[in-house]
Amino acid sequence: MTTIIEQAVQARLIAPAPRTDSVPVTLRYDSGDPFAVRIAFPPPATLEGTEVSWVFSRELLAAGVERPAGVGDVRIRPYGLDRTALEFHAPQGVAMVHVRTDDLRRFLRRAQSAVPVGLEHLHLNIDHNLDELLRDAA
C-alpha cells in the first residue's frame, strides 16, 4: 500500500529588494517513490502561471537542513537560526525560497515514519517500473 504525505508550508520567495512574497507551497512524499520528495509552487508564484513542481532526493532535503547540500539544479542550506534556503536552478534563471526549518523537519519525520531511511528498497515496485519501461519501448 502506498502512503502519500502532503504538507502545506509557507515559503518566502526571495526577489530583488525590497520585495519578498510569502507563497503557500506543498511538500509531498509518496512511499511508491521512496527516494524522492516534491515541492509544488502554485500558479501565482510562477512565471508561467501554472503549477510548477520540483523533484529531488529526500536525502538532499535532510542534509540541506543541517548543512549546505546539492551541486545541481537543487541546492539547500541553512539560513539564519530558523530557516532553510532552497535554490532551484533552471535555464530560465534561479529561484530561491526560505522555509521554516521546523516545517521541513516535521515533514521529514513524517516521511521517515512512512519509509525509514535505509529501507526505501523495500517500497520499490521494480516489476511495475520495469513493465512501464518496457511498455514504452515496445
Rank of each mutant, 00 (worst) to 15 (best):
P44H: 03
V115E: 06
G49A: 11
Q112I: 04
L119E: 11
R110D: 11
P68V: 07
D131H: 00
A69V: 05
N129S: 05
G118H: 13
D82V: 08
A85M: 10
A62P: 02
N129A: 08
S53P: 13
I126C: 08
P116Y: 14
R105N: 02
A114F: 11
F107K: 12
R28S: 06
D127R: 06
L130A: 01
E87M: 03
V74R: 07
A36V: 02
H121N: 13
A114V: 04
R109I: 07
D33M: 03
S22E: 15
E120C: 15
P34G: 04
G118I: 12
S22Q: 11
P78Q: 09
P78Y: 06
F107P: 10
G80L: 02
D102M: 12
I76V: 06
R105D: 01
E59I: 11
N129T: 05
G70F: 06
L47A: 15
D103I: 00
R100P: 07
V71G: 01
T50M: 06
I126Q: 08
T84Q: 13
L47P: 06
I39S: 15
A62G: 04
V74F: 07
R105Y: 00
H89S: 11
S22T: 13
T84A: 10
L61H: 13
F88Q: 12
G93Q: 02
R77E: 12
W54H: 14
V23S: 00
G64A: 07
Y79L: 14
L104T: 00
A40L: 13
A62S: 05
G70R: 02
S113H: 09
P34C: 05
N125D: 15
R109T: 08
R58L: 09
E51Q: 15
T46A: 07
G118T: 06
F88S: 08
P116A: 15
R75T: 06
S113V: 02
F88R: 10
S113M: 13
L81N: 04
D82A: 14
Q92D: 09
R109L: 10
A69C: 03
P43S: 10
R38Y: 15
